[in-house]
């Protein structure tokens, strides 16, 4: 690894560490946020127990499969919001000209921006995901796959937020749109893909990337398939590359922008 890359990563790690340290100043708030978020997620177990009491399989999933799905969705969401929370509030930085501060530093703009904020309750989500895995379907192989897919899922989710958020470089109104699109990914991620039919499935792989972030990984954990695993990894790389490309195109527009309205 070159020293430049090492230095980049060192600064990112420090940023995340310091962000979390800041949140830990008030220990009670810190802990209640984490605990209550885990509890919050747990209430949805009620929903699925009820649904499975009506029917034994839902979209080809049994209760433990849906729990695995839920666990992966929570840990994916959690990891993305612990490391890259700023991706989800990117439009605010763009519209209010707050990217300036990152542009005068000699570090990678995108990485510095992404790691400049953290969400404490997301720790609760990540832990909840791991607990769910342990309670409902633990095996050594599945544990490693789960960790791997938490990472790829978090990257896909962040990349999607980055793509949507970058729309604000071009459209001022895109802020709310981006928020609804990223949150829709969570909505889909907590229901089994088997209930959707036909054309809708395309939507979940092409428009909202929940298919490769959550559905395929769950299927791979239920029934291992190396080809699908490679597809998930390839998709992760591809989507990230696209997101980075669009962000930097937008950043160029930000720097050469002549639309004052968007800048304040």
């Amino acid at each position: 690894m070159s020293t430049a890359v090492k230095n980049e990563l060192r600064v990112c790690m420090l940023s995340v560490k310091y962000n979390i340290m800041r949140e830990m100043l008030n220990k009670v708030t810190f802990l209640t946020n984490i605990l209550f978020m885990a509890l919050n997620n747990a209430t949805f177990i009620v929903q699925w127990v009820i649904l499975f009491s009506l029917r034994e399989d839902i979209g080809g999933y049994a209760l433990r499969d849906v729990m695995l799905l839920w666990g992966l969705a929570a840990s994916t969401f959690g990891l993305a919001h612990i490391l890259f929370a700023r991706a989800f509030s990117l439009p605010d930085l763009i519209i209010n000209g707050k990217l300036d501060a990152y542009l005068v530093l000699p570090k990678n703009v995108l990485l510095s921006v992404l790691t400049s904020q953290t969400s404490v309750s997301a720790i609760g989500d990540l832990l909840y995901g791991l607990v769910i895995l342990c309670v409902f379907s633990l095996s050594i192989g599945r544990f490693f796959l789960f960790v791997l897919f938490t990472v790829t899922g978090a990257v896909i989710y962040t990349a999607f937020a980055l793509l949507m958020g970058s729309l604000s470089f071009w459209f001022v109104r895109a802020e709310m749109f981006a928020g609804h699109m990223t949150s829709s990914m969570v909505s889909f991620a907590t229901y089994p893909d088997g209930i959707f039919k036909g054309a809708v499935k395309f939507l979940l792989y092409l428009v909202i990337p929940v298919g490769m972030a959550i559905y395929q990984p769950v299927h791979i954990m239920m029934d291992f398939n190396a080809g699908r695993l490679l597809a998930v990894l390839g998709y992760t790389l591809l989507l990230s590359a696209a997101a980075v490309f669009v962000f930097y195109r937008g950043l160029r527009r930000y720097s050469s922008s002549n639309l004052m309205e968007a800048r304040g």
Binding site: T3, A4, V11, Y18, M21, R22, L105, P106
Partner: peptide, 23 residues
């Protein structure tokens, strides 16, 4: 008007952070 320091850290830690930023 804009603070660049981390307020929950000591000046020393802040300086080390900026040291890391500038390699």
């Amino acid at each position: 008007q804009k603070e660049q320091l981390w307020t929950h850290l000591t000046p020393y830690d802040n300086f080390r952070f900026f040291g890391a930023i500038y390699d």
